[in-house]
Write a protein that binds this DNA or RNA. Structure first.
Lengths: 252, 252
DNA sequence: GCAGTCTGTTACCCCTGGTAACATCCGGTC
DNA sequence: GACCGGATGTTACCAGGGGTAACAGACTGC
């Protein structure tokens, strides 16, 4: 039971005679319910649970989405779209900026997204579309998508040579992996991580390795990153969570 | 419903397999069988199948490994150990080398590994240990492990500050993601990819973006990477597959 | 002989993904 | 109104996979 929502809203003039019209809305509602469940119970939610949350039973879900993978793919598409949009906005800003600012803003946008909704992120990373592929389940496809988006931004001519794409996918993986680690340990606040990663892409690694080999050890890296961390503190969209308490950086 | 008949909660004899020393050999044999099946059927192999491959039945597997996650974790540990060893050897070479050579060798070692055995790689990436964690299934732990390994190599003093660890995990993710993309599309041979990624870490991105913004578009990146690609052709272990021809990128 | 433990088995439970078959409402058409 | 198509919904079921209980030999050591 529990069929709240009174069904048949009909408050708006349902003039559209298209048959898919109503079913599209139903589909969205089902997707909403699935989203709620997945965000609450994690990606292992059963179809029964999702159906119950939607106030219906399994076969309806299967009529709409084919199978579980279809549902999850539809769900993932939504979120991926959202993220890709934000990334695109950060990569192609309206006013002219330096390349470094663009990269930094892009990184921060990504991090802000996964920080704002870790559940979505986990779902996308670990489950979305991982089942369908025959043998080699491509890494969740959403990462690929963002990568291609970034690659296109590197040379807007459409050439998109191998190096650019390798870099783009590499950068996405870089931000994703360090972001994942950061989400778990929270060793610093987001602007600092953004700055560290931008530094890394801007050639901080050879510098750090060279100096550490010669004599002075790790202080170099620390100071380098910290100096730019401050300047990055206010670049990207909000979505900032509250301070979330301490967890001191514990940087030696 | 009906009646649960006590049982109350999974018993969970953590690490049930510890007792006999002779059982250790059996354990290895079981693990071998599981390995065979997983490499043949992919990570979705059922416990029944694995048991059959080992010539036994399910309960024995459960006595040895607790549950499926335990088996998979044991399996993953093996392969991760192997990879971590290779990485460590590449990061800390016996004779003195330049930092750049070390990084390049490390990247190439990783890529060589995933190229040599994609099945293992897929398994580690997608399944290993992804189930056990309560809510947030950390990314397969093997990536983390390699990351920590790399982080330690950055400042051998043991400090391992935040920037170094952020970089290390980022680099691992970078190599992993681009390697994954490369495995799927094979847009170039391994040495080229290794060179591209090393270039990226050595500050090629700002250069490329600056020049592409000013005038010349993508030729810069291509030539830069190609020049070093040749020099990297013979750094790490072989395991090279045949050329596999040139699938043109042709991304949507 | 007995206890203990390791090996192995059969048979079972429960849950989950997925399907079949049947019942229903609602909008449109003659 | 009668009728029909299509979406909505249901109960009931199946196959298969994870996991467990309970029992059966075999080997050790006393």
């Amino acid at each position: 039971m529990t069929h709240d929502e009174a069904t048949t809203g009909a408050s708006a003039p349902v003039s559209a005679a298209q048959p898919g019209r109503r079913s599209a809305r139903r589909r969205r509602e089902l997707l909403d319910a699935a989203d709620r469940v997945v965000m609450r119970d994690g990606p292992d939610a059963s179809m029964n649970t999702i159906a119950a949350e939607a106030g219906i039973t399994k076969p309806i879900l299967y009529r709409h989405f084919g199978d579980k993978d279809g549902l999850y793919r539809a769900l993932a598409e939504r979120h991926t779209e959202e993220l890709a949009l934000a990334i695109r906005a950060a990569v192609h800003p309206g006013r002219t900026t330096t390349p470094r600012d663009r990269i930094q803003a892009t990184i921060d946008t990504y991090l802000a997204h996964i920080e704002a909704n870790p559940q979505v992120y986990r779902f996308l990373l670990h489950r979305a579309g991982a089942e369908s592929a025959d043998v080699h389940g491509h890494v969740t496809a959403y990462q690929r998508r963002v990568g291609e988006e970034l690659a296109r931004s590197f040379d807007p001519l459409g050439t998109t040579g191998v190096p650019a794409r390798a870099w783009a996918h590499g950068i996405v993986g870089m931000v994703q992996a360090s972001g994942d680690w950061w989400l778990d340990e929270r060793p610093c606040r987001r602007p600092e991580l953004t700055a560290h990663l931008t530094e890394l892409l801007w050639g901080a690694l050879p510098t750090a390795l060279a100096t550490s080999t010669e004599g002075t050890a790790d202080r170099t890296t620390d100071s380098t990153a910290a100096s730019t961390a401050a300047s990055a503190a206010d670049s990207a969209p909000e979505t900032s969570a509250q301070p979330t308490g301490g967890i001191p950086p514990k940087a030696g």
